[in-house]
C-alpha cells in the first residue's frame, strides 16, 4: 500500500526534474565547462572546417580545414572520456589521431609542392589532367 501512496510524489519528482535541472545548472555555472559545452565548441569547429574545405579552391585551405575537423573530433574523444568515466582511453585515441594528422600533413604538403611544380598552381579545380 505504501508504494502506491508514494507513487504520485515520485511521478511529480520525475516530471518536475527536467524543468528544474537546467535552471539549477545555469545558476551554479554548471553549463559552462560541462560536456555539452565541449560538444558545442567541437560542433562549431567541425562546421567551420567543412565550410573552409567547400568554399576555397586553394589546396592549402583544404588541408587547414582537414586539420580543424580532426581537432574537433579530438575534443569529443577527450571530453567523453573525462565525463563518461572512461579514464585515459580517449586521450590515447586522441594521441594517435594527432600523430596520424602530423604524418598526413607532411605527405599532403609534399604533394601540394609537387602539384605546384607540375601545374604551376595549387588550384584544386585545375589539377584535372586525369580526366583526359
Amino acid at each position: 500500500m505504501s508504494p502506491l501512496a508514494a507513487l504520485p510524489a515520485m511521478l511529480a519528482a520525475v516530471t518536475a526534474e527536467p524543468a528544474v535541472e537546467p535552471l539549477a545548472q545555469a545558476a551554479t555555472g554548471g553549463l559552462v565547462g560541462s560536456l555539452s559545452s565541449y560538444m558545442v565548441v567541437s560542433g562549431v569547429l567541425f562546421v567551420l572546417g567543412v565550410a573552409t574545405i567547400l568554399t576555397r579552391r586553394n589546396a592549402l585551405y583544404v588541408l587547414m580545414g582537414t586539420e580543424l575537423i580532426l581537432n574537433a573530433a579530438n575534443i569529443n574523444f577527450v571530453a567523453f572520456a573525462r565525463f563518461g568515466g572512461h579514464g585515459i582511453d580517449g586521450q590515447m585515441m586522441a594521441l594517435v589521431v594527432v600523430m596520424l594528422a602530423a604524418a598526413e600533413a607532411a605527405v599532403a604538403l609534399a604533394i601540394v609542392l609537387r602539384i605546384f611544380h607540375d601545374f604551376g598552381s595549387i588550384d584544386i579545380t585545375r589539377t584535372d589532367s586525369l580526366r583526359d
Binding site: V41, V44, L45, L48, M64, L68
Partner: peptide
Amino acid sequence: ALLGGLVMA
C-alpha cells in the same frame, strides 16, 4: 578556438 576558426574560414 572559435575566433581562430572563424578567422581561418
